[in-house]
Design a protein around this nucleic acid. Structure first.
Lengths: 160, 160
DNA sequence: TTCATTTTGAAATTGATTCTCAGTCTCGAA
DNA sequence: TTCGAGACTGAGAATCAATTTCAAAATGAA
């Protein structure tokens, strides 16, 4: 039951994944390739559901469990990062050569913007130090309305 | 089946809850009082499980669903706030006359410290502004090892 | 006391995620 | 090539926190 895997996206990611997989005796499979390929061909912060749907478009036999398993591997390999925003489901974003960054989440349309702020990071470190904490990671998320949704709310006629 | 409700804790909270309840046609019940009482007699960030356990110590017939329901009411009334730290379960902290604050969470012992930092808040507002966002709320959590756990790790003999 | 309405506890349900298991692949060795 | 141990897969069961359902019980205004 062979299926053609669409042409590769993000070669760097595939290579890093390949060596990660080889290094621990895992095996590379058609499903894994397809899921990884699908993930890297998208941008933004995908939920597993969304990813399952996209993957099933290419191969309807893909199971959700495999998508979960694959995203865990990608995360362990440092190629994706899992985010847990409000709303209960984990979202993944590509992590290849990316800086640390935080998020602005629109509670109306779900749009997610990213930002980096060195000054805030420094202040966080200082706070941690004052409390004798060694910080391993942190979470900074700003929730509210994006510009477009504010517009929409004050101008309901133009909505949608 | 009358049971004695232990003497009141945090009268202010009870009064505010009473008017909140009265204002919307809800009824005040023995279970509710007991749960609220139990909640305010504790400090820190309680999970529902912990609260259920404490409540059952006073009245084993209390059901978990009622604790969930009661904490939702307390939250809606602005007397408690729900926090969703890493780990999957909601934790509640008293919100009576409390300033906004953020958290430092020890990933080893689970200890949670609080902090306020006006400067960070300002910078967050600026970031949001630059992106055209109107922020309604945010989440800032620093995860790592508290002083005690660092000590313990570098000095395993003194562990425990 | 009456009784419409709210509340309760237990059990069922939900939603996201993980686990289990029997059948399939993968890949290095022969 | 062919083999075979071990990894992988999909489906469905299991888990876990939280919510909902439902019949019985409690509340409180009249």
């Amino acid at each position: 039951m062979k299926r053609t895997v669409p042409k590769k996206v993000s070669t760097a990611a595939h290579e890093r994944l390949a060596s990660w997989i080889a290094a621990r005796g895992l095996k590379s499979t058609r499903q894994r390739d397809l899921i990884v390929d699908t993930f890297f061909s998208q941008t933004g912060h995908l939920s597993v559901d969304e990813l399952v749907e996209k993957a099933k478009q290419r191969d309807p036999s893909i199971g959700a469990a495999t998508v979960y398993r694959t995203m865990k591997i990608l995360t362990d390999a440092g190629l994706a990062s899992a985010r847990h925003f409000e709303g209960g489901q984990t979202r993944y974003e590509g992590a290849l050569d990316r800086h640390h960054h935080d998020h602005l989440i629109c509670t109306s349309c779900g749009n997610i913007a990213e930002f980096e702020n060195e000054r805030i990071e420094e202040l966080q470190d200082r706070v941690a130090e004052e409390h004798g904490f060694t910080v391993t990671h942190h979470k900074l998320e700003l929730y509210g309305l994006c510009a477009a949704c504010q517009q929409r709310q004050s101008n309901p006629n133009r909505q949608r």
